[in-house]
Amino acid sequence: MSKNVIVAGLTVFVIVALFPFWFNIGNTNAAPEAELSAKAKAAKKCVLDKYDMRANHMSLLDDWRDTVVRDSKRVYKAANGKTFGMSLSTGEDSCMGCHVDKEKFCDKCHNYVSVAPSCWECHTDPKEVTQ
């Protein structure tokens, strides 16, 4: 009697636990490529190289925001010699100064991997203001 209950319970658990897999059967999508703006393409070099940036941009931004807010330093001379303003969206030398299109550059991948960074709750997408 209790054996059946346990087996049934386990089955339900396994089915529920595997929900993301069976739910997505048939609609596999290719990973999107972030689209570089003309300005970003022309600049060639970013703060870190492409793969470092992909893996670690969140910790870089986290470190930047602490440095700006808590140590009041705003200029970042990267290891590759280029200088940046440590800001997400303020100024030509900020992230959004070069990567002007948030939708194509940020949201595309974030949506794909289902992350919702809280950056934009406070910081302004330059496009939002001009609209």
Partner: peptide, 10 residues
């Protein structure tokens, strides 16, 4: 060291 990033005030 030149290969490390440097943070400064404006």
């Amino acid at each position: 060291a030149t290969n490390l990033p440097v943070k400064t005030a404006k």
